[in-house]
Design a protein around this nucleic acid. Structure first.
Lengths: 291, 291
DNA sequence: GTTTACGATGCACAGAGTGCATCGTTCGTC
DNA sequence: GACGAACGATGCACTCTGTGCATCGTAAAC
């Protein structure tokens, strides 16, 4: 039994497909097939059931999967722990798209200056994917908005951030000195796609005030939301950090009067994985970041 | 990091010597040196401190040692668990020399008949060595005499066995109808070497009756004790199972009157290791063995 | 100073793992 | 019902890694 075989095996188990797994592994499909064959030969029985369109784990495969994961995690962490000098190494950070471009660059720059030997790897993805990556040890830290279904993960709230109402410059509400949430109710909303938690934040905040925002458009980037608002497709709510970077004069931002909509930004990590000094340091910088 | 590297590493750590470890591993010393070098290269630091006469673990090495052991154990057990069909496989049994030849052959024969596909491996060694082997997962079961310092090990008493007084045929006590322990006190003893727990059993039993047997001779095999007794070098105490196999008429066995000296035979195993159905079966046969 | 113990290094070789090309089988589709 | 696509298995040639043998370098022991 070789470690590579276990890595290969896990990937095939994950993808349910030799060809796809081989691509992931940067390996030819025949090589992968043979590697699994050899593993099965050693175990005296198949670990996969080959169906015509996909493969699934046998009983033996299920057992092997959990043990292989365990073993590779231990070795990965051991290596990280031994090579941990607090200066060099790797920090893999994930962030949701509505945070990444507004919050991360500053922290990354600061961190890179302070730890020039460190390698920073950033992944931008949805909350669900980030949590999965974090659980599987593919990233060390994830920065996202609460609430999260954080099974087996640890998190720490970093700060709370106001969501600002964004309006086209010529919108009726612009001249109103105090805008309450109820004032917004009649207007259509421009929101991000459903996979984005910011939409959930906004919708759930509105729902607490018992109104359901009407989403006229769904887009995938905050910048696009801002542009669509400028073009009077609707109004929206934008995190304060995204407003800071907005140079345009074709839209205006207003703070909602009364209880203000907000989101809580948190950092998440996997407490079962070794936390290198570099990772700890990154978390420290996140905490210390002015907001 | 490769599994072989970890195996090599552990052996060197155990032996504190590359050359010796290489012999154990059936590998040339240069190959071993290079393998460790590569491991150290990957970890970015040495795992051994090379002194002129021996090598010792560095801090990193100590960490790696425990993790490597853990990993190899998991994989070993996983393989055992997957390949466990209750019929084929391997059972590694250890026994102390004063039990092995008298008790094991019958059990082994019976077990081999019942499980013809199974491979039986028997190791004869002292209690200390067997417990060490069991802890390290080098054997699956150990059969020995209580008491044992059984840290992290589980044990189950199998039966209690009387220790019989053995005398030369022409000994003064032979004609005595009832021999009490005090009657034996004046006579010199033939005992096994100090590493054998049977000597401990005998000595501690006598000490409870507040006398210290005088050992005139120390030998390494029960058969030799029996022969020396025949030659009137002294008297001794012999487990009942060893008497059964004794065909000679040059010595006689007597049961001590009063509280009889005895030893408790137990089977020991490592509860942290996977117990295959074959191992369980072997334990069952041990329990069921008539005594 | 000489010998001994022990790990490191140079060099050549064998075998395991890999990639490419291709095959065999089973669905899905026209 | 024949054809094509998806997917894993197999044949073959090659390369690269790990290994053994011979030898070296160094420090302790005699």
């Amino acid at each position: 039994m070789e470690l590579d075989q276990l890595r290969y095996f896990l990937r095939v188990a994950e993808r349910g497909n030799f060809t796809r797994a081989a691509e992931d592994l940067a390996l030819s499909q025949p090589a992968l097939s043979r590697s699994i064959q050899k593993l099965e030969e050693e175990l005296g029985q198949p670990v996969f059931e080959r169906k015509t369109r996909s493969v699934s784990l046998t009983e033996a495969g299920v057992l092997l999967q959990s043990r292989a994961q365990q073993v590779l995690t231990i070795l990965d962490d051991t290596k990280a722990e031994i090579t941990d000098d607090g200066q060099s190494g790797r920090v893999r950070v994930g962030a949701i798209p509505t945070i990444a471009p507004y919050f991360l660059p500053d922290v990354l720059r600061q961190f890179a200056t302070e730890f020039p030997k460190a390698t920073l790897i950033v992944q931008e993805n949805t909350t669900d994917e980030l949590l999965k990556s974090c659980t599987q040890g593919e990233i060390d830290l994830a920065i996202l908005a609460l609430p999260i279904p954080a099974k087996y993960l640890e998190f720490e709230e970093l700060f709370e951030e106001e969501l600002l109402l964004v309006l086209p410059v010529d919108h009726a509400l612009v001249s109103k000195p105090k805008i309450r949430l109820t004032d917004v109710e009649p207007f259509p909303f421009v929101l991000l796609g459903e996979a984005h938690c910011l939409s959930d934040n906004i919708v759930s905040f509105c729902r607490q005030r018992s109104f359901q925002p009407v989403a006229v458009e769904r887009t995938s980037q905050l910048a696009m939301v801002q542009e669509l608002v400028s073009l009077s497709h609707g109004v929206s709510m934008i995190p304060a950090m995204a407003r800071k970077l907005d140079q345009s004069d074709r839209r205006v931002y207003r703070s909602i009067d009364g209880r203000k909509p907000a989101r809580k930004i948190a950092v998440v990590w996997n407490p079962y994985r070794f936390q290198s000094r570099l990772i700890e340091a990154f978390r420290d910088r996140l905490r210390a970041y002015p907001h």
